[in-house]
């Protein structure tokens, strides 16, 4: 689905941001890209849909070479959600805002209506279609932006810190929608700083540091590499740190989310209870 071969990217001032990246993302994956600020995460994402063209190497999206394809063409294959919804919202109704991308790609008016409605429904905004997007809350505006990307019905969805600047619930709502989309078979690539979200939702984690991949593997594998995480100013999720403390005392196995931890504890307590009852 996404093939990155020896990708190097330098800005015009000579700053080398990405160095010889090789990443392969298959259909249906949920990959999180993490790393400290300035590691090149956003630059990598922008290389995926041709907003930036590789200095060296090659990026293939569904077989299309991004250096030879316009972003407006790649937009049919790959949806891109930015951190700040206010960079894209300009229409006077939510409906028009969601329909913008569809009109750009030349879809017929009859189809647009149902596609917009479906997209709005996925993000829970179907009753807001006639509202002015600027009158909505920040969390809702982010969902409008997400719907406008979803409406394009692309197979790949790229999210650049989709939960930044939102409260906890707003962030969770976005992530639940994304999880559902992944379950329906969409490929998700997400940049985030929130390790709890990574542990809870991602299936694969890639750590970027100074433009190179230092870790790439399943969420469990990568999140237990404390050294690599520390190098990138990151910390494993709290459930993992707590489980580590318990392990030193000889209890429990590795857990990464609160739910797993809870399961561990409850099964242990049940065991104790049964032992007492016997």
């Amino acid at each position: 689905m996404i093939r990155i071969n020896n990708l190097c990217y330098r800005y015009r001032n000579g700053n080398s941001v990405l160095k010889n990246l090789n990443i392969n993302i298959k259909s249906g994956e949920f990959a999180a890209i993490i790393g400290q600020n300035g590691a090149g995460k956003t630059t990598l994402l922008k290389n995926l849909n041709g907003l930036l063209k590789p200095t060296e190497g090659q990026v293939l999206i569904c077989g299309l070479d991004t250096s030879k394809t316009k972003t407006s063409v790649l937009a049919k294959k790959i949806g891109f959600l930015f951190q700040n919804p206010d960079h894209q919202i300009f229409c006077s109704t939510v409906f028009d805002e969601i329909a913008f991308g569809l009109k750009n790609t030349g879809i017929s008016p009859n189809e647009i209506e149902s596609m917009v409605y479906n997209a709005a429904k996925k993000v829970g905004l179907e009753s807001y279609l006639k509202n002015d997007p600027f009158s909505l809350s920040k969390g809702q505006r982010q969902r409008v932006a997400l719907a406008s990307v979803l409406a394009m019905e692309t197979d790949i969805l790229v999210l650049d810190e989709p939960t930044t600047g939102q409260d906890y619930n707003e962030g969770l709502e976005i992530m639940e929608i994304v999880k559902e989309l992944n379950a329906q078979g969409k490929t998700i690539v997400m940049v985030t700083h929130d390790m709890e979200l990574v542990a809870k939702y991602a299936k694969r984690v890639i750590i970027l540091m100074k433009g190179t991949v230092i870790e790439d593997g399943t969420t469990e594998e990568v999140l237990s590499k404390e050294e690599s995480l520390a190098q990138s100013n990151l910390k494993p999720p709290q459930a993992y740190l707590l489980a580590k403390k318990f392990q030193k005392q000889g209890f429990f196995r590795n857990t990464y989310t609160v739910e797993d931890m809870f399961e561990e504890i409850i099964s242990y307590l049940r065991g104790e209870q049964n032992a007492c009852n016997d």
């Binding site: 849909n49 407006s72 930015f82 894209q88 394009m152």
Partner: peptide, 16 residues
């Protein structure tokens, strides 16, 4: 810089 950001956001939605 802001225009650049906005331009990229719209281009990602097929804006030409």
């Amino acid at each position: 810089g802001e225009i650049e950001q906005i331009m990229q956001a719209q281009m990602s939605r097929g804006y030409n």
